[in-house]
């Protein structure tokens, strides 16, 4: 690893971002891969289109006869995959840093299930149809409700991070049971919609979804980035962090807020995708040993790339059936974990 680094500072030095050369290289490589995959995804479909035609549709839609397909059907889906993947990757990385446990992730500690349970509840009581703008709001509220419950337990019982995870896993199971109950007691159509939603699908992503998720990512990803160095300090233990001058509780709260907001909003727009929040941070750590700031960027890109690729497979591989991307995220994620295990044993 090169020891030269690039440091970005605001004038008052309140915010600094230090990235090593190696990290920058990884970020650039991932960025290229992401752009490339995005363009490939725009070219692929039930009838593939030539890159030149796709480019024309993007640049001058009025002269293109596939503008509708590229700009209204494919493009929002690609963008939503990138945003959702990035949000989940970062949420996972921040949570793992916060509780100092590599098994933490939005789906493991129940944030995803909280959002899912809230959304399924709304779907099954008939409060909203699929695609209603109410669903994201309720899902995000569900994510925060779970986070708040975990925090309250932590507060009252002075729980250690390890215990926090156990509480989260408990809540996740309870939410899972609740979801099953709601699906079993609901009619066919609703149950089917709820199932599709739960697996996590980018089917029929529209510009409204992209624009709905964008503000969350645009606010909370930089927020997480701005507090990233506190994650590094927290990794040294609470006592050390306090003595180094980190306002421990405040920073923890801000980081948790960012993680929950990112995970909750991602789930709200793409359904109960699991695994990305767990795997993307591990992949990021394999790619770079930089500090949390660099890792956040890398985890975001890895997450985005994972979901984008998974969605290409689900969309193209079994056409005309459109399989939920969540299925293939698990297909990529599970072998990776086996590989990790293999590495660890050596």
């Amino acid at each position: 690893m090169s020891n030269t680094a690039i440091v970005l500072r605001t004038r008052s030095e309140r915010l600094t971002l230090r990235l090593s050369r190696h990290t920058l290289f990884v970020v650039a490589a991932l960025g290229t891969a992401l752009l490339g995959s995005a363009f490939v995804s725009l070219c692929l479909g039930s009838h593939s289109t030539s890159p030149a035609n796709v480019f024309q549709a993007l640049v001058s839609p009025h002269e293109s006869d596939i503008a509708l397909i590229v700009r209204e059907i494919r493009l929002p889906r690609v963008l939503l995959a990138i945003l959702v993947g990035a949000a989940l990757g970062v949420a996972g990385l921040v949570l793992q840093g916060l509780v100092r446990n590599p098994l933490a992730s939005p789906d493991v500690i129940g944030i995803t299930s909280g959002a899912s349970a809230a959304a399924v509840f709304l779907l099954t009581i008939g409060g909203a149809a699929q695609g209603s703008p109410l669903i994201p709001v309720v899902a995000i509220a569900g994510a925060f409700a779970v986070a708040l419950t975990i925090l309250t337990v932590a507060w009252i019982k002075h729980a250690t991070p390890g215990q926090l995870i156990l509480v989260g896993i408990g809540i996740a199971s309870a939410m899972g049971a609740l979801i099953t109950l709601m699906i079993v007691t609901s009619p066919d159509t609703t149950a089917m919609n709820a199932y599709l939603w739960l697996t996590g699908s980018l089917y029929a992503a529209q510009w409204g979804d992209v624009l709905g998720l964008l503000p969350w990512v645009a606010v909370f990803l930089p927020l997480a980035l701005s507090r990233a160095r506190h994650l590094d300090i927290m990794a040294m233990g609470d006592d050390m962090a306090t003595s180094l001058g980190s306002a421990l509780n405040l920073n923890r709260l801000v980081l948790l807020l960012a993680a929950v907001a990112l995970a909750g909003s991602a789930v709200a727009f793409a359904g109960g995708l699991s695994f990305i929040g767990l795997v993307a941070p591990h992949m990021a750590r394999n790619l770079s040993r930089s500090g949390s700031a660099g890792l956040i960027l890398i985890a975001a890109m890895v997450g985005a790339l994972m979901l984008l690729l998974a969605d290409i497979i689900g969309r193209i591989g079994f056409a005309p059936r459109d399989l939920p991307a969540g299925v293939f995220v698990a297909c990529i994620g599970a072998p990776y974990f086996v590989y990790q295990l293999h590495r660890l044993r050596r």
């Binding site: 039930s46 009838h47 397909i69 005309p320 459109d322």
Partner: peptide, 16 residues
């Protein structure tokens, strides 16, 4: 032409 499932018809094929 078959367009996939009732719950998730293939939008692109519809457009084509």
């Amino acid at each position: 032409h078959y367009l996939g499932l009732e719950t998730q018809p293939d939008l692109e094929s519809i457009a084509w």
